[in-house]
Design a binder for these strands. Structure first.
Lengths: 203, 203
DNA sequence: GTATTTATGTGTCGGTCGATACATAAATCA
DNA sequence: TGATTTATGTATCGACCGACACATAAATAC
């Protein structure tokens, strides 16, 4: 049982990838349908037929980003490294992913919809949820560290996760401001220097 | 020799302050002339007569912000505290200024123009310069620490400044995502835990 | 083949954007 | 007072926004 009617003349996933790059570089509010259709090499009716609306296309683009370009960052938390090495690897991966060649600078989830009019509120909220999910994963990794006996109990894991989340978010802006990969890696390294004090119950 | 003609019927500095709050809350691209004129209680011809254009008004709003709401943050670097205490006080002041009552959340300089179309490039560049100026002031404070003998020579001050600049920038996004003052203060505190290692030549 | 279904390209919708033209109102200077 | 200068309110400019109507083209089902 195949689909009837005229088949789509463009590759949907390729078009989505093009859209992701545009949204990533210019943000939700800063991207117009014209820019999208040009980058996707289609006309606006095809865009609306395939993706519904600008906002739905944005959500799909973010999902694609999280599943591809951003996957390696949070993946660092899933392996068998120690808690400390996991967090460190995540920061380094995040730093590297902020300055990928041939890709927009900075993290799409961090910079994709920071400001705009009321019509961008939904997109902002969507990215905010993604960021909170990131912080949640960091906290879960810390909880695992406590369960494994690597970290003492009684730590305020929420605040430790907030600290590292803050560093990750800051690095994206730093990258947009022109920081090179070397600088970002040194920032990641610097952020880890307080680890022992951060994970002791004395702090 | 007084001014001739009909005098201005509104207080220019009050109007500028209103404009600052709108730009601060919604960003450059997300703020329309309509929102500005409504908040300023004037009509658009008066806005253009008094401020020239949206972009010039934005620049004045940023300058006002830097001179008032943001002044206390960098002012922490100018006093007679030790280098460590200066940086720490700056982070704490930045954390507090991110969640001021009756003010938009986060730092205007960090969040005021992150993304948008090509017509926002000038505003973005302007804020980027402001952020680099902040990093430059931090570095100058560190240089003073070296000159005073508080810090060893041979440190890479640029990278230390980049680290603290990253934390400050990240805190604004954290605040926009809903972090409360207590959380931000704990982030600032966490960011200082690596100070000794960060300012030793072993790192 | 013919009918049906779906996607495409052209053109355009109402709305809003930033920015002004214009005539009028309100002040100072002579 | 009259002449001049400046600011105000109304109304609107062309451009662009996101979204879609419509007729046509291209595929499958029968």
């Amino acid at each position: 049982m195949n689909a009837r009617g005229r088949p789509r003349s463009f590759d949907r996933s390729v078009a989505l990838e093009r859209a992701m790059d545009v949204f990533w570089a210019r943000g939700y509010a800063g991207t117009s349908i014209s820019e999208l259709t040009e980058a996707m090499s289609i006309n606006s009716p095809s865009l609306y037929a395939a993706f519904g609306s600008k906002e739905e296309l944005f959500r799909e683009a973010v999902a694609l980003y999280v599943a591809t370009d951003d996957a390696c960052t949070l993946q660092m938390l899933e392996g068998e490294l120690t808690t400390r090495d996991s967090i460190s690897a995540m920061l380094f991966a995040s730093a590297r992913s902020c300055v990928r060649p041939d890709k927009p600078v900075g993290c799409f989830v961090v910079l994709g919809a920071t400001n705009g009019g009321p019509e961008t509120d939904a997109a902002q909220q969507f990215l905010c949820d993604q960021r909170k999910d990131m912080a949640r994963r960091i906290r879960h990794r810390l909880e695992r560290g406590v369960a494994d006996g690597e970290l003492p109990s009684g730590l305020n894991l929420e605040r430790i996760a907030a600290y590292f989340g803050t560093v990750i978010k800051g690095m994206s802006i730093e990258a947009r401001d022109g920081a090179n990969g070397e600088t970002l890696l040194s920032v990641a390294k610097s952020a880890m220097l307080g680890w022992d004090a951060l994970t002791s119950t004395q702090g």
